[in-house]
Every structure is written in structure tokens, then in C-alpha cells.
Nucleic acid binder design. Structure first.
Lengths: 352, 352
DNA sequence: TCTGTGCTTGTTAGCGCTCACAATTTTACG
DNA sequence: CGTAAAATTGTGAGCGCTAACAAGCACAGA
């Protein structure tokens, strides 16, 4: 019934104020939940806002407050499960905290590409950047760059003094290894990921430490490149060793594979070699990809909580932006061991 | 040597103007490549911009031009290869065209979730939205919503009158099917994806059409859910049929699987059943995921050019935003057949 | 020399919002 | 009741930029 202002463009705060019979500032107060507004006024304004379909202009707001409330995400390889989930987690967390995120996906993390991505984001006035950079080279390139805003890494390790958050890969590997040792295996073999990846290195380290702590023999390392094929090839080598090691001291009865995809390849190679899992060789993975539960047999693995990884990275970033902390902090998220059929307990260790 | 203005905050256009001895408007002209600026002035201004490290304030620009140059992306299931690549393609294309993108990832494409995502994006004044919604239900929900800006769908089919762009799934399926028929197979079996997915339906349709056009028998349909496990199960059924159909008219010698992941499962089931690929049964997939080339054997499949899918969707969206077209258009991207070892030509069709 | 045309530059007024402050009303309490 | 304190509301300026217009200048042709 009230007369509407010009329909040709989106209503402004002043339009709302005029219709509600208050000042534009009062409208602003209502919108930002300022305490000193009477309930009656607040209700009236809210009603007019609804009625006009008013929506705050974020550009004007950003100009006046000098805050864009926008964050940038730089990620490499977002087509893989891990990075893709992490980016999704970051975006969700940022959205919950009232920030807009914009993601830039890089094919390769060269310094040039990283610099360009930063320029792009800086041009839009992002207040902070989350960099999902699991490779050592990428983190190094990132650290060398002078950023126009705070930068937080995810899965970037804590070798350099960039603040960041990562999963406790080391602990995850220990959990897996200890679980296998506790299940009655004399030692645990390991198929690692590529050397430049921080995740890969930490998992290898955790595995080795767990073995040493338990006084178990440390078998030679096999290496893959995260792909199922490389796991398959490693699996073939392992199958050969199983036969060779039969009846000897610490036989090959358990394998910790650095990710689930490679584990898939290992499982298949073992199966083709006539070895049963877990009866002959127990196999564990890392990541808990959605398919892992349906592997033959269902895979024991480490679950990574990407949502909380995202939440923590955003929390850390906002701490820096809003000046709650100056030091470069490093948060670590605890992983969770998921035990499935591929590592069922050995009832009676045979032939030892 | 020139005196720098207050360092405590980022330099503004006026700062640049003062140092360069021109008006702020001239600086603005240089920045927006306006033709009527003398070479000398342009050079001087450019140099000062460099020197001060000046960067245009996008919020102020957006406020003055009433253009945010921001686009939204709404996607479901971005942890899968297809959607993840598509989103990356969209983001890259938008960036090339000078737009900022912000992505919202949904777990499930309910109408509520879609509406919330739109509200979020609308709050930041996005000028358009790209929705990556491969499920029929999601497109329907989207069409029912009244959007605050132009919306373009990717892989949303052209059933409803939303403009969009999609891969020619039908053609892809035909290419695969015709390739198999041309290789000497009497007919081609099919493992389809879940029924609610538009991609799945179009692939099934293309397969069926190609068979009918060639006058080939249309075998019963098997169905999976995109996962390797479901492919494995379908593969087991297929293996059973192979034995049953030996020596009969149109035997089971070729299978078109609706995506590469399921094809992986099929390959394994066939292998376990003692059947060789491609000698006994040829297998083809769809998507060309990075692993497909390394499957045992390397998989014949359909490559989807996600980058051009992204580029086209952004092109279409900007056409709508900038008023170059009013009608809802639907673009279709042609797929590419990648022939690999899994469908090697049959030299002499045995036993027929 | 004068006028007209095109090129180059400067001036002014907002875009829609928030901040700091001022003005007004209400409430509290001696 | 009166007055101080608190709560509520309004006013003006300005965030950094672009659009529209105005002004200055050089150069051509009459």
C-alpha cells in the first residue's frame, strides 16, 4: 500500500529509510544489529526491508568500511579428491564466517603462476589468501613471494615460517603402523608417495618412527606417484617378496600404502599373485576416499576431516586479518583411523 | 626521489594524480585505456603507478559503475572429476574475461540449498551465475527458483528453458557405439549410470540410437551408480552372459560403460572371470579421466573438453549479462573419441 | 585574423554506505 | 519535580572511483 520508490533500480538504504519514516542511519543500525535501536523501530524497518526486497550494496559497504570481506583461495590440482575436498571445506567455512571466497586453480605451482594468481586476487582486494599447496616446491615459491595480504597454507608443512594448518600425517602413519603391529605383524612394509610432496614425506617418517619405537625391522621403501597404476606395480614387487620371505624372520605380511588409490593397485596385484587380503598380506591405505569402503576388501585407512581443515585454516587466516595474532602459527588436525576388513586381526601368526 | 604520499594506507588515484601532476581523471583514463590521452602523459602516469604500487580499488569502481564484475558458481559434488574440472574451467574462463568468480559447493542439490546459495551470491552482487547441475532434479529446482541475475546451466540438459551449455553426450555415446560396431562387433552392451542424471540418460539414448541405426540388436541394459564397485558388479553379470552367449548370434563381445570409473570395475570383473580385453570382450568408457590411459588395458573413451565447456558457459552468461541476447540459448560442445587398446580391432570375428 | 573542429585535460557530482558526532527523547533517581 | 545519565535517532562528511560535462589548446580552412 505504501508507495514504492523508483522500481527501475534496486532500492537503497535511503529508499528504505524514507518508506519506514526513519533516517538511513537507523536502517544501517538495524542491518548491522546495533543494540541501541528500539524494538518498534527495528520491526518497522525490517518489515520495509522485506517489503522492498532491499539488499545491502556490498561495494558501497566495502568502500566505506575499507573491508571487502573477500578471501582468495589458490590451489593446485583441484581435480584430485584431497585438494578438491579441502577447497570445498575452505569455501564452506568462509561462507559460514560471512566471507566471499574466490578460488584460482593452478595446473602447476610455478612461482610465476602463483604470482599471477595473487595479482588477480589482490586486484579484487582480497583480505587474505588460503593456499592449498601440498608440494614442497610450491610452498617454497609461495614463501619467496611478497604477498599483498596474509597468507595461510593448507597441507604446506611447517618447514617455512608461513602460518598454516595441516593434517597430522605423521600421526596418521603411526596409527596405521601401530595398528598393524598390534594386529600381530612382525613388521610393516610401506609404499610411499612422490618425494616432493610434504604429505608423502611425513607419512613415510611416521611409519619409520613407529617401527623403530616398536623395535621392529624397517623394510626397504617402495615408491609410487599416487596413481593406482604405480600402486599396482609396487604391489607386483611386493608379491614377489612375499614368496621370497616365506618362513623367514620378519616376513612380508602387512603393507601400509601412502594413499588409497595406490592401495587399490596393490590389492589387485596381490590378488593376481594369488595372495589373499588380509589373510596373507594385510593392506592399509590413507585418505579414506569414498570408494575405499567398497574396495575388495574394504580398506583400512586414515580419514582426513577436510571440513575441519578448512574451518581451521579460515580461523587462522581471520585471526591474522583481524589482528588477533601476529606470530605465524601452525595448527595440526588429528586424523582418524578407520579399521576395515583389509587388516583384520591375525588370529594365529603362522610360520614364525 | 619524488615525495611519496602517506604510506600508512594504499595509494589512491588522487595520490597518483598528484605525483604525476595531472588530474585523477587522467589517471582513470590511463587505467581504462581511454584513447584520448597523449603518449607522454600516459607514460608519466604509468610510471608513477608503478612507482607507488598503485592498485585500483575494485569496491569504489563497482560502486561508481554499478558493475561488480563478479560471477557466482553453484556446483554439486565438486569432489568428482567431472564437476571439479568443469568448475575449474569456468573459473579460468571467467578470470580471462576479467571477472571474479565465487563458487558455492553443495552436497545435495535441494531447492533450499540452491536458494541459500543464490542468496549468498546475490548478497555480493554477482552479475550472473553458472550452475553445474548434472542431475535432473537439480535443474528442475533451479528453474523453479527466481534468480536475482542471469543463470546459465552446465550439463543441465535443454529440457527446461534455462540457457545452458553441455557436452553432446548423445553424440559421444554414438561415436563409441559406432566405433565398436565398425570394429567388427555384432552389437554393443551398455552399463548405464543412475537414471536421474541427464548425462546418464543421454549416453544411453545415444547408444540405443546408434544400435538401431545400424540395425543391430539392442541388448538389455545394465545399470551402475558411477562407482567402480557398481561397475565391478555389472562386470560380473556381463562375464556370466559372455559364457552363456558363446556361439550364439550376436554374442557379448563389446561393452560401452557410461563412465571410466565403472569401466575400471568392469575390466576387473572380466579379468577375474578369465576373459581377456579386448580379445574376448572390448570395453569402452566415457570421460577420459587421467587414470584411463593407465588402465589395464588402456581405455578407449570419450574426452570431454572441460575448459571449452567453461569458456562457452561464461561466454553465454556474459552475452546475457551484457544484453547481447535475450533468448535462452543452448550450446553443445562436441566430444572427442579416444581410441586405446581396450577396443583394438577384431581381426577375425571368431565363432560367428 | 577569426571561427570551427578535434584532441587532450580538468571539474564537479554522485554511486550507497558507514563513521563520528550532534540532537533529541526517554529513563533513573534524589 | 528536576536534573543527570542513558538510550535512541539524526546529520554531515567522505570512502575512491567513474560519468558527464566544461575548458583549454592546437591546427585547419576561410
Amino acid at each position: 500500500m505504501t508507495q514504492l520508490p523508483d522500481v527501475s533500480r534496486a532500492p537503497t538504504m535511503t529508499d528504505v529509510a524514507r518508506v519506514a519514516g526513519v533516517s538511513h542511519q537507523t536502517v544501517s543500525r538495524v542491518l548491522s544489529d546495533h543494540p541501541n535501536v528500539s524494538a518498534k523501530t527495528r520491526a518497522a524497518v525490517t518489515q520495509v526491508i522485506e517489503q522492498l526486497g532491499y539488499r545491502r550494496n556490498s561495494a558501497a559497504r566495502a568502500l566505506a568500511t575499507r573491508r571487502t570481506h573477500t578471501l582468495g583461495v589458490i590451489a593446485v590440482n583441484t581435480t584430485l579428491h584431497g585438494p578438491a575436498s579441502t577447497v570445498a571445506g575452505v569455501q564452506e567455512a568462509a561462507r559460514d564466517r560471512g566471507y566471499l571466497t574466490s578460488a584460482v586453480t593452478l595446473r602447476t605451482a610455478t612461482q610465476t603462476a602463483l604470482a599471477e594468481a595473487m595479482q588477480h586476487l589482490a586486484g579484487w582486494g582480497v583480505e587474505g589468501i588460503v593456499a592449498v599447496t601440498p608440494q614442497r616446491a610450491a610452498v617454497r615459491a609461495l614463501a619467496a613471494l611478497e604477498a599483498p595480504c596474509p597468507v595461510v597454507t593448507v597441507e604446506g608443512g611447517h618447514t617455512l615460517d608461513l602460518p598454516g594448518v595441516s593434517l597430522d600425517q605423521n600421526l596418521g602413519a603411526r596409527l596405521i603402523t601401530e595398528h598393524l603391529l598390534a594386529s600381530g605383524h612382525a613388521t610393516v612394509w610401506h609404499v610411499a608417495g612422490p618425494p616432493d610432496w610434504l604429505e608423502s614425506e611425513a607419512r613415510t617418517q611416521g611409519w619409520e618412527e613407529a617401527l623403530r619405537d616398536a623395535g621392529a625391522e624397517v623394510p626397504p621403501l617402495l615408491r609410487g606417484d599416487w596413481s593406482p597404476l604405480s600402486g599396482y606395480q609396487a604391489g607386483q614387487q611386493l608379491a614377489g617378496r612375499v614368496r621370497a620371505s616365506r618362513g623367514q624372520g620378519a616376513g612380508l605380511t602387512a603393507v601400509f600404502v601412502a594413499n588409497d588409490q595406490m592401495a587399490l593397485g596393490v590389492l589387485r596385484a596381490l590378488r593376481e599373485a594369488g595372495l589373499r587380503t588380509p589373510e596373507d598380506v594385510a593392506v592399509a591405505g590413507f585418505d579414506d576416499i569414498p570408494e575405499a569402503e567398497f574396495f575388495p576388501p574394504p580398506l583400512t585407512t586414515i580419514r582426513q576431516d577436510f571440513a575441519s581443515l578448512g574451518r581451521d585454516s579460515i580461523g587462522l587466516l581471520l585471526d591474522h586479518i583481524e589482528g588477533r595474532t601476529d606470530e605465524s602459527t601452525h595448527l595440526v588436525v588429528a586424523p582418524e583411523l578407520i579399521v576395515r576388513a583389509s587388516t583384520a586381526r591375525r588370529i594365529a601368526p603362522p610360520g614364525e
